[in-house]
Amino acid sequence: MTSPLTQTVHWDLTYDVHLGNTWGRFMQGLREQKILANTCPDCSRTFVPPQAYCEACFVRTEQWTELPAEGDLEVFTVVWQGFTGGPTPPYAVGGIRLAGADTLLMHVVTGLDFSDPSTVRDQLPHGSRVRAVWAEDRTGQILDISHFEPAG
């Protein structure tokens, strides 16, 4: 069968995404090698990344705290097939429970041996301790934390 007739359509969109005060403060914290979180005054849940408001209590959050840069890896996946413009596979992405947080922080996880896909899950069992590794050049973005690595 001959190739179907198509027309190439390309979107070339560049954005300046507004951070607002809450995420702005979080990003400044990353530059200073601090992981900041905030808390809902009504239900006391602690959010990292911080939230401007609690979606359940529907009130503005208030109190800010600094969390330790270490926590438990609750879940992760290894990407074997990626996407155009994304990181080069294989790479691992995980959900990390920092001590004191009620949310998971999603981030890149290193320290895995990728040679055999069937072994990856056992290498970092649920709850494995992981710690943040800071990037040398920090500019106020989530990858100022370069990745989380197993903390022995």
Partner: peptide, 13 residues
Amino acid sequence: MIVEQPLGMGGFH
């Protein structure tokens, strides 16, 4: 955007 998108997750990820 900002906090998770750079980590490289698509749908099945």
